[in-house]
């Protein structure tokens, strides 16, 4: 299917149980197995603080109670050991996308996924992030 490393360790953060379930199921269907899912940003921030938890990719919802996706992204980028972790933001509010992309880009978000999406889109974005063939300049980096 692809030359992706199936040992990538992925953290999924979404407050909606069904969406979380779908995301995890998609990832498993692609062949990934090292997946951790959390239901809010606060738990996720706590999780990333513990350096024993290996993470290669974070997929997080933008809008979550208390600690949202942007705050989580900021926490990751400010963290000395985590700041280069790949971060994919998921959102469903198309009308405010421009604002969100701009704000997320300021904090160097790596990819952006709009709900609802097809599995191939999700897979494509992950491939883009981890395939060495894609030059760095095509990645969203502020």
């Amino acid at each position: 299917m692809s030359n992706l490393n199936m040992d990538l360790r992925i953290l999924v953060v979404d407050d909606d149980a069904f969406v979380r379930e779908i995301l995890v199921e998609y990832l498993k269907s692609f062949g990934f197995s090292k997946i951790v899912d959390l239901k809010d940003g606060a738990k996720a921030i706590h999780y990333i603080q513990d350096l024993k938890n290996p993470i290669d990719l974070i997929i997080s919802d933008w809008e979550m109670p208390q600690v949202g996706g942007l705050q989580l992204l900021q926490a990751v980028r400010k963290h000395p050991q985590r700041k280069h972790t790949q971060f994919m933001m998921v959102t469903s509010q198309r009308s405010q996308e421009r604002m969100k992309i701009t704000r997320a880009a300021l904090w160097s978000v790596d990819a952006y996924l709009v709900k609802p999406f097809r599995g191939e889109i999700l897979l494509g974005k992950i491939e883009e992030l981890f395939s060495s063939e894609v030059p760095d300049k095509f990645k969203i980096r502020a």
């Binding site: 909606d16 069904f18 969406v19 779908i22 995301l23 199921e25 998609y26 959102t91 469903s92 509010q93 709009v114 709900k115 609802p116 999406f117 097809r118 599995g119």
Partner: peptide, 9 residues
């Protein structure tokens, strides 16, 4: 967005 994600997924 969430509901449609669920339906499509």
């Amino acid at each position: 967005g969430n509901i449609l994600t669920q339906i499509m997924g």
